[in-house]
Design a protein around this nucleic acid. Structure first.
Lengths: 257, 257
DNA sequence: TAGTGGTCTAGACCACGTA
DNA sequence: ACGTGGTCTAGACCACTAG
């Protein structure tokens, strides 16, 4: 009997998968990385089945729980979908950028826009009510205040105002102009854990408009964010203004199941 | 020796935990629900340790992997933090609202604002370039078009424009005025999987301003969203306008680790 | 050194979807 | 009826952290 043209949902798995047991990298992680890269490179096409877990485990010389752990991590990332009685398949969706704690610096760099930063202020100040509440410090206590103007393609893009608790890390203006705030914090050993964000819009005040190269009254995107480390300390409170004509927030999100 | 005041990070676990093996609810889920509710109610205070997994498993008559599965799900939600050599503790952070595929209707309802909706249009139309690209259909093909004005406290809040593939579900205007679009889709058996969003701002055009009760040129928040089901089909493309003076997007997000 | 989470195994039975 | 993923067990060894 002649072979039928293979439907997109049939197992397509000559796929080279190998694990190195001498490596310190966890086996499930090696596997999930290989699967992810195969999906990324298009070797595993959308809709294709992965083959059942038992057989996959046998073929790799792994136990089923280990294989499941690898697959589960990709399901959590939204790359795979499991269906009982059917199998595990590569998701069809076209976009697969995960939602991260986005850094404007990284965003711009990824877009090939070579960001530039001018530090307008880098000093200490007394915390006002809002800042004190966000950072969980006493009103009037001393906090770091950083104000930056960020450019892309030589055009101003955003006015970034940050408040940070003192003593957290060394906030050097030169370093701030060379990279982003989050990178500095991570480099200083701060482990970012979660953030609370609020995105809105308002009209530009005259001074803000002047700095950003917009007309007074022009629409600006606003973002306020408080970031916490894994001990629950607030490590940063940002209050940012973006030119709506030049910037928008893009992200993908997964539906909690 | 007199007892020292207990530091916040010490195990505090008289905590009543029980599992019902006759229940169809998975054991790990019963456990994670109980832990989550204990955290929510403040019985497990921020910073308190959970006690090691082995002992917890023994006390509940469960195996360690099952207990780990329960704990892991809460770690993924950002409620718990694990540290090797230390233990598992309740995260200190004050806010713990997860990021979801937010529905304006649900948001307003949760805020106690009793949303009202007026359907302005509910018809079919030919897909233009943008809509066709977003939904993955041919340009000019027929799609559903829904335009709604949403009110809170009797004030207009947002102008919602949605395009949907035909034949997906019954798009009844009365139902649309009684609840949100996502609820209708879920009720029709559509399993939402992921969405691609873009949030920006712009000035209100005269007609938009009129409908929303703003002045022309007033800043509006814009949101475009394409939602996919678990087969990768685009099931909805929305292009929405919010009064910036009355609405902003709020969400929490976790740092991928 | 002792205690914790991180990883891994080799099985088992069940529930659900498809046919 | 069959094959799939969903759940669960009872162990094991290792890596990291604290004291």
């Amino acid at each position: 009997m002649p072979k039928q043209p293979r439907p997109a949902s049939e197992p397509s798995l000559p796929l080279q998968l190998v694990v190195d047991r001498t490596s310190p990298v966890p086996l499930y992680y090696q596997l999930s990385q290989q699967l992810e890269s195969a999906i990324e490179r298009g070797v595993l096409t959308p809709g294709s089945l992965l083959g059942n877990e038992i057989e996959l485990a046998g073929r790799l010389g792994l136990s089923r729980p280990t294989v499941r752990q690898a697959i589960q991590s990709l399901v959590d990332k939204g790359l795979l979908v499991r269906r009982r009685g059917v199998g595990t398949q590569v998701v069809h969706s076209q976009v697969r950028r995960p939602l991260e704690l986005s850094s404007l610096y990284d965003d711009l760099e990824a877009a090939g826009q070579r960001p530039a930063t001018v530090v307008l202020r880098n000093t200490t100040a007394a915390a006002d009510v809002a800042v004190a509440a966000a950072l969980g410090v006493a009103e009037g206590s001393e906090v770091l205040l950083v104000e930056r103007l960020r450019y892309a393609h030589g055009e101003p893009m955003a006015l970034l105002t940050n408040h940070l608790p003192t003593g957290l890390f060394d906030c050097d203006s030169e370093a701030l102009e060379a990279t982003g705030l989050y990178r500095l914090m991570r480099a200083a050993g701060v482990t970012l854990h979660s953030a609370r964000q609020s995105v809105g819009a308002r009209a530009a005040a005259p001074e803000e408009a002047g700095r950003l190269g917009e007309e007074p009254g022009a629409p600006l995107l606003t973002m306020e964010r408080t970031t916490f480390d894994d001990t629950g300390r607030a490590v940063e409170y940002g209050s940012h203004l973006y030119r709506a004509s030049r910037y928008s927030f893009e992200f993908q999100l997964l539906v909690r199941s």
